[in-house]
Simulated assay, not measured.
Amino acid sequence: MLLSLTQVSIRYPSTPDTGAVDERSAVDSVSLGLAQGDIGVLIGPSGCGKTSLLRAIAGLEPLASGQISLGGAVLGDAERNVHVAPEMRRIGMVFQDYALFPHLSVAQNVAFGIQGQPAAERQCRVTELLDLVGLGSAAKRAPHQLSGGQQQRIALARALAPAPRLLLLDEPFSSLDVDLRERLAQELRSILKQTGTTALFVTHDQLEAFALGDVIGVMHRGRLEQWDDAYHLYHRPATRFVADFIGHGVFTPARIVEGDGASGPRVRTPLGDLVDVEECPLPAAYPGGECDVLLRADDIVHDDESPVKARIERKAFRGSEFLYTLQLATGERVLAHVPSHHDHRLGEWIGIRAEVDHVVTFAREASGGAYGA
């Protein structure tokens, strides 16, 4: 692994109402690895610690515990009191606000971090990077003459100019509109792959994370809940928080029961039994087999012939589809993606069935009641 974090913790002082000085953990015992040339993404709600972790990797935050290494060299080790200065780490960083120098031209901004190189080499590198980000014709322009998306690409070119061992990006698209963010995320991935740059990206936008990341980390309250590819985050969430945070879905009371004859266990839900699924846990996995099953919106199929009916409580138009919020006669709520030409009225009852390829269950929350027999 190029980048390796081992049990990294970061703490900030806090002053409660009592007046006593205390400390709170912004990052708590995070371990992860990022391979050469891979793009990692940290995602999570505001205040979960993702930016603090990025700043610690850059050398801008001291470690309370743990170790950070890059290419086998230790950059920070709390126990051994090692802290390599930020400017000595060969790590580039792209910020939310671009941080371009307004008094310098686009080319001068890109060249800022490579002033020590010979003039000819410097010019060649600037031209190469401006062409790479599609702004070769803007070299002599001032940053304020460019759009937000163009300024972000200039900031990226400037960060890439010194050929950093690792590039860190802290929500660089947060100030841009949704359509532009999605396009730039795809362009950014292409540029990073072309240059073979290893990068770690922070965002709160799941679509950005999925578009960019080879590996994605979901953070919650300072802890790394899961560090995995997008497919496994969605279909194999390691914790209840990841299951709830990624995608659209609900947890429904269920019971795992033994199958009949040669069939394996099945999960009994308000929409019927989920059967013939290899990943189905054994009934003994939970007391009495009682659990909560994750039903995502794409697990619920609109089927007028189904005996299971649900009433439409809410619907959100998404272009090619609606996201329906549905209530079953038994009171449980589920979500469903329905093609937008199936434009049913609020309050209407429609038939639905479950098609679950990946059964994901968790321990029953205290508020959930027993289900099935």
Results as ranks from 00 to 15, higher is better:
247 G>Q: 02
262 A>L: 13
6 T>A: 09
27 V>G: 07
25 S>K: 15
92 G>N: 00
158 R>C: 02
71 G>C: 03
7 Q>M: 04
342 H>A: 12
318 R>K: 14
139 A>C: 06
105 S>A: 06
371 Y>L: 08
340 S>I: 07
347 G>E: 01
36 Q>H: 15
27 V>Q: 05
27 V>F: 08
166 L>H: 11
132 L>V: 04
259 G>M: 06
292 D>Y: 03
152 Q>V: 00
283 P>E: 01
239 T>K: 00
256 I>W: 06
164 P>W: 10
46 S>H: 10
289 G>D: 02
264 G>V: 02
47 G>W: 09
112 F>Y: 14
86 P>V: 13
86 P>E: 14
60 L>G: 01
231 Y>F: 14
326 L>D: 00
309 K>P: 00
241 F>K: 01
365 E>R: 14
181 R>P: 04
97 D>Q: 13
294 L>R: 10
65 S>K: 12
185 A>G: 14
347 G>W: 04
160 L>T: 01
140 K>S: 13
169 L>T: 11
13 P>Q: 09
357 D>E: 13
369 G>F: 05
272 G>R: 03
18 T>E: 11
93 M>T: 08
7 Q>W: 08
111 A>P: 09
66 G>H: 01
178 V>P: 01
297 A>K: 12
18 T>S: 15
123 Q>N: 15
366 A>M: 11
310 A>C: 11
325 T>V: 12
144 H>F: 12
347 G>T: 03
31 S>A: 04
307 P>V: 04
83 H>N: 14
212 L>N: 08
84 V>A: 12
369 G>H: 12
160 L>G: 04
287 P>D: 12
48 C>L: 07
274 L>I: 15
108 Q>P: 06
217 G>H: 07
63 L>D: 02
233 L>Y: 05
339 P>G: 02
161 A>N: 03
244 D>R: 12
27 V>M: 06
133 V>P: 00
93 M>I: 15
144 H>M: 11
201 F>H: 15
293 V>D: 03
194 Q>I: 10
270 P>S: 10
202 V>A: 04
92 G>S: 04
283 P>V: 05
24 R>N: 12
312 I>K: 02
177 D>C: 04
243 A>H: 01
343 D>F: 03
61 E>V: 12
15 T>L: 13
334 V>L: 15
290 E>M: 13
120 A>H: 12
130 L>N: 03
193 K>F: 10
240 R>W: 06
60 L>N: 07
308 V>E: 01
270 P>Y: 08
